Amino acid sequence: ARRWVVERTHSWINRFRRLLIRWEKKVENYLAMLHLACAWMTFRAAGLFG
């Protein structure tokens, strides 16, 4: 069985506990963490990080 791209992405984002449970009260802080998580996943997929 193959997973859809969106399901896989949501699974990867759920590994970041800070995004799974929204602790930040400011939207800017939450979006910054979301961008950081997406950048981290992109670098890992490209093989730049371990």
Rank of each mutant, 00 (worst) to 15 (best):
A1C: 07
R2I: 13
R2P: 14
R2W: 07
R2G: 09
R2Q: 13
R3S: 06
V5C: 07
V6Q: 07
E7G: 05
R8E: 12
R8Y: 01
H10Q: 12
H10M: 04
S11L: 08
W12Y: 15
I13L: 15
N14A: 07
R15Y: 04
R15W: 01
R15I: 00
F16N: 03
R17P: 03
R17K: 13
R17N: 02
R18H: 10
R18G: 05
R18Q: 13
L19H: 10
L19W: 12
L20G: 06
L20P: 01
I21W: 10
I21S: 10
I21N: 07
R22W: 00
R22A: 04
R22N: 14
W23L: 14
W23C: 13
W23I: 15
K25Q: 05
K25I: 03
K26Q: 12
K26L: 09
V27G: 08
E28N: 06
N29M: 03
N29I: 00
N29E: 12
Y30L: 02
Y30V: 01
Y30F: 14
L31W: 14
L31K: 08
A32Q: 14
A32K: 14
A32Y: 08
M33L: 01
M33Q: 07
H35P: 02
H35K: 15
L36A: 11
A37N: 03
A37C: 02
A39Y: 04
A39V: 13
A39F: 10
W40I: 13
W40V: 08
M41F: 01
R44N: 11
R44K: 15
A45K: 02
A46N: 01
A46T: 09
A46E: 10
G47A: 00
G47W: 12
L48G: 01
L48Q: 04
G50L: 04
G50Y: 00
G50T: 03
